[in-house]
């Protein structure tokens, strides 16, 4: 059976969900998500440290989506009407939170992205710190303001491995799913 993003999204929305969104990823959507999650967290009894970590990591993951979401030709994926389509689900886990993001990418971008995540996952905390500082000091921002630091920062702040999958959608497009654990 071929991959269907709506089925995928529904399955994510089963347990302990704090917030979920699917659709166009815009600056406005990011603002609303951040505002809403901040309100929810402030009424939670969760300690400030993990709340702050979650918020930080959420900002990076949303902005990663925003910077990397590609224009998806209409009709590429079943049931998707937005050209800048992405999904976001934040759920509670036993010892923290899980942030799931998903977006469509062209097949040629899979290898560099996979290599980058595998590299990040292979590094120790000290090595991540060095990598972060190196990129910070040597790489220029893109016109959209992306700096190639988002995933490194997320791995560093969470201390957990990044989990991901690529699902084939069409000849040219894949659905990239990233699971981030904040604990």
């Amino acid at each position: 059976m071929s991959f269907n993003v709506n089925d995928f999204y529904l399955k994510l929305n089963i347990k302990d969900v704090l917030l979920s969104y699917k659709g166009n990823i815009s600056s406005d959507v990011i603002n609303k998500v951040l505002e809403s999650i901040e309100k929810k967290l402030s009424t939670d009894s969760e300690d400030r440290k993990i709340r702050k970590k979650l918020y930080n990591v959420l900002v990076e993951s949303l902005q990663n989506l925003y910077h990397h979401v590609e224009d998806l030709p209409l009709g590429t994926a079943e049931g998707v009407d937005d050209t800048k389509f992405g999904i976001l689900v934040i759920s509670k886990t036993e010892n923290g939170y899980k942030i799931t993001t998903g977006n469509f990418i062209t097949s040629r971008k899979i290898k560099p992205l996979k290599d980058k995540i595998d590299k990040i996952n292979s590094l120790t905390q000290d090595e991540l710190k060095d990598m972060y500082k190196f990129i910070l000091n040597h790489q220029k921002l893109t016109a959209k303001g992306g700096g190639g630091l988002g995933l490194v920062d997320i791995a560093r702040k969470t201390g957990n491995k990044l989990e991901y999958s690529f699902q084939n959608v069409s000849d040219e497009y894949y659905f990239f799913n990233l699971d981030i654990y904040v604990s």
Binding site: V59, E60, Q63, L136, K140, L141, G146, G147, L149, D153
Partner: peptide, 9 residues
């Protein structure tokens, strides 16, 4: 809070 886009600036 600051994001990675700000960190370079």
């Amino acid at each position: 809070y600051f994001n990675t886009s700000s960190s370079k600036c």
